[in-house]
């Protein structure tokens, strides 16, 4: 647990911190880009489809976001992803956010990836942002996305993070919700390319 101390004389630094967060979105490596059309997909690229859910779901008052642009963090989980597996042992740094997946809770994401396997290292969501406090919730990772060469689209499943009232993750489950995801995939992209089911697997 790393609580935070704020002094009023350091409130200016907190403001600087907010600017820093704004700047961070410009500084960190890009997120995996959402895909709206398969026509722009390169030969060595794959659409990764999946979903993140919280059980029980996030209540409206549980995420307190204030200030400019803070709405863009609403219901959003940042999934830290890398082609090289590693265990995050402390708060992720800016570099860890490069290649992230930005997933809106309870909605399928469709993101562009290289046609190579990669790993979900963990997740992060802002609980308090833009006020005097900044609080984040972290979610466990250790999951492999198994993309094969030639895959145009893969479905990785729904990651359900079960949590208690203290935001401790009590269980993480991979749920196969392929039919619903495939229906949305076909509606979005047509039936030219199949959505191959390749559910996330725990890294051994």
């Amino acid at each position: 647990m790393i609580p935070r101390r704020l002094t009023f004389t350091r409130a200016r630094l907190a403001f600087t911190g907010l600017l820093f967060i704004g700047a961070r979105s410009a500084c960190v490596g890009a997120a995996r880009e959402p895909v709206d059309s398969l026509s722009g997909l390169g030969g060595d690229e794959t659409v990764v489809v999946g979903r993140i859910e919280l059980v029980p779901p996030l209540r409206k008052d549980e995420q307190k976001l204030k200030g400019l642009n803070s709405g863009s963090f609403e219901n959003k989980v940042f999934l830290l992803a890398d082609e090289h597996y590693r265990v995050l042992t402390e708060e992720p740094g800016m570099a860890d956010y490069a290649g992230r997946i930005e997933a809106i809770l309870g909605k399928n994401f469709f993101v562009r990836s290289h046609s190579k396997p990669f790993f979900i290292l963990g997740g992060m969501m802002y609980l308090d942002l833009g006020g005097r406090e900044m609080n984040r919730a972290y979610f466990p990772g250790g999951l492999k996305v198994s993309i094969k060469p030639g895959d145009k689209a893969v479905y990785v499943g729904t990651v359900q993070y079960h949590r208690n009232e203290f935001f401790e993750v009590t269980k993480a489950a991979i749920v196969d919700d392929y039919d619903r995801a495939n229906a949305e995939f076909k509606k979005k992209f047509g039936a030219k390319y199949p959505l191959r089911k390749a559910l996330l697997t725990p890294v051994k």
Binding site: M1, L6, T7, D128, N135, A137, F167, E168
Partner: peptide
């Protein structure tokens, strides 16, 4: 020291 506020995290609060 001035006015200080010591905030505890919402996740992982012992």
């Amino acid at each position: 020291a001035g006015q200080h506020e010591y905030s505890f995290p919402r996740q992982g609060n012992q």
